[in-house]
């Protein structure tokens, strides 16, 4: 077993152990923080597929995160007011069932990623970064002016949505849901990386022309991974909105895209558990630095800068060495 695998197992174990301890020590706030880490890590796992595996620097993943969030906000607010979402040509009711909300979130963010990806993947390099940013901004401004769902103020939900057989209002049970989703996404993305599809994608990142000469079309591979990436981030958005029982255009802002990117890079690009390590470190810093300075964002910036300049490969890279650092 490689050192990185051991570190991954340790990270998963810590993320599971801390909230269980907090549950018995009656520290609900720590459970909420751990849930937040799991959800943000899930968003990062999504981006990491595009960024790490596909080499696609998307600066607009907030769009999918926000679409997932709004899927929850819109469906749950209609269920809460007993009004249908639409009546024509057929009636669609709101719902407070998480599985349905998740399905809608994943499908909608997948469709958005399909449209955005199909257009954006015609460009590369800085143009790709900027066009994904532009699409993200379009959704942001659309949400701000969409007064039917709160405009700038967003949508609040009074009671967390339901999951069959669980009491989602119990912090530890909601954590279990988020943690399971994260683990499934991690297993899924490690399977993708090892599959023929993943190998072809890695090859397309490293030597595009060679891949084309053997008859593989990089565009299709990239579009596929971009859509999968958007879907996972969309699911994370729906969970995040449920954790906060609130969704607003902030979820769609370019700063959110930047933060998701930070989780991935802090932890280590293309490392399986990179987003988990990155999100955990981000939330830890937020609380440790936030505890002694109201200007904690500045200190965060300093830590981030030092990591980019001197610790390439992120946290996992520092801990596990360079054995898997490719590309």
């Amino acid at each position: 077993m490689s050192r990185e695998t051991l570190i991954n197992i340790a990270l998963a174990a810590i993320l599971l152990a801390v909230p269980i301890w907090a549950h018995f020590a009656d520290e609900p706030f720590i459970i909420t923080l751990s849930t937040k880490v799991a959800i943000l890590a899930l968003a990062g796992v999504g981006l990491n597929l595009a960024l790490g595996l596909g080499g696609l620097v998307s600066f607009g993943h907030a769009a999918y995160f926000g679409i997932g969030g709004y899927a929850m906000g819109i469906l749950a607010s209609h269920a809460q007011d007993y009004t249908p979402f639409m009546e024509w040509p057929f009636v669609i009711e709101g719902t407070n069932q998480m599985p349905i909300i998740w399905l809608v979130a994943v499908v909608m963010s997948g469709l958005a990623a399909l449209a955005i990806g199909a257009l954006s993947l015609r460009t590369s390099g800085i143009f790709f970064i900027m066009i994904t940013l532009a699409f993200g901004q379009m959704f942001y401004y659309f949400a701000i002016s969409w007064t039917a769902y709160g405009g700038e103020d967003g949508v609040s939900i009074y009671v967390r949505n339901e999951f069959p057989g669980l009491n989602t209002l119990d912090a530890i049970q909601f954590f279990a849901l988020a943690f399971t989703a994260l683990m499934l996404a991690l297993i899924f993305s490690s399977r993708i990386a090892k599959s023929r599809f993943g190998l072809a994608l890695t090859a397309a990142r490293q030597a595009e022309q060679r891949v084309e000469t053997v008859g593989i079309k990089p565009f299709q591979l990239r579009l596929t991974v971009f859509v999968i990436s958007g879907m996972i981030t969309g699911l994370a958005g729906a969970l995040m909105a449920d954790l906060n029982r609130f969704v607003s255009p902030v979820m769609l802002s370019w700063q959110t895209s930047g933060e998701i990117m930070i989780f991935v890079i802090l932890g280590g690009v293309a490392r399986l558990f990179g987003p988990v390590a990155g999100a955990a470190m981000f939330i830890l810093m937020e609380h440790i630095l936030g505890g002694f300075s109201e200007f904690w964002h500045g200190w965060l910036g300093l830590v981030l800068l030092l990591i980019v300049l001197f610790a390439r490969g992120g946290l996992i890279g520092v801990l596990a060495g360079k054995e898997k650092a490719d590309g």
């Binding site: 620097v57 500045g298 965060l300 910036g301 980019v308 390439r312």
Partner: peptide
Amino acid sequence: DHLDQVLATFALILILSEG
């Protein structure tokens, strides 16, 4: 690469804004 540049200058925004 561009990714490092985006991240490092994003970090600079945080530092300069808070400063």
